[in-house]
């Protein structure tokens, strides 16, 4: 510690003082920007504003024709949304229970089909033929306005 301490005096050479003050002021300003910028970015909501995806908009009304299906992303895994002949929406997890391939809708058979090893599921998700050992998990479907919302129960 310095042995002789005095309160600040005003009679310093202007140039040195102002250089140091500019340096300090500029540095502090940059630091404040460096703190405020991440904070503002943090406060702005990200693209997907929710942490837990227990529901997802799988499609819009009219996206699907009767007797067709489409794959949508549900969290980390795929889901399949099917519009049946009788205009009923059904949704299942689309990961085949055999070796985790993604299943697809077969309009010709009106069944869910896994192309990898020819596994079949009926429109209740039940494994009916081929290697799949278990049914597909079924999700709830609700039509909210224009959106077809799929939820995990």
């Amino acid at each position: 510690m310095n042995s002789s301490i005095k309160t600040p005096a005003a009679n310093q050479p202007i140039s040195r003082r102002s250089f140091l003050d500019y340096l300090l002021g500029g540095g502090l300003l940059a630091l404040v920007v460096g703190i405020v910028y991440p904070v503002l970015r943090f406060v702005m909501p990200p693209e997907l504003p929710e942490a837990v995806q227990s529901s997802v908009v799988a499609a819009k009304v009219g996206d699907l024709k009767p007797n067709s299906g489409r794959i949508f992303r549900f969290g980390k895994g795929p889901g399949i949304l099917i519009l049946t002949d009788s205009s009923e929406y059904r949704a299942f997890g689309a990961t085949c229970t055999h070796l985790s391939c993604t299943v697809q809708y077969r309009a010709d058979l009106k069944e869910i089909w896994c192309a990898c090893h020819n596994g079949y599921y009926d429109l209740n998700g039940k494994n009916i033929s081929g290697p799949p050992p278990r049914p597909l998990p079924r999700y709830n479907v609700a039509v909210r306005g224009d959106n077809i919302v799929v939820t995990k129960s």
């Binding site: 005095k6 600040p8 005096a9 340096l23 300090l24 460096g34």
Partner: peptide, 26 residues
């Protein structure tokens, strides 16, 4: 890499400021 030198610079400037204030010349 930008932030750390900046922080060090501010700390250094603060140190110089203290040195200036407490310099026996003043």
């Amino acid at each position: 890499a930008i932030t750390i030198p900046l922080i060090l610079l501010v700390a250094l400037a603060l140190y110089w400021k203290i040195r200036r204030i407490e310099s026996p010349k003043h």
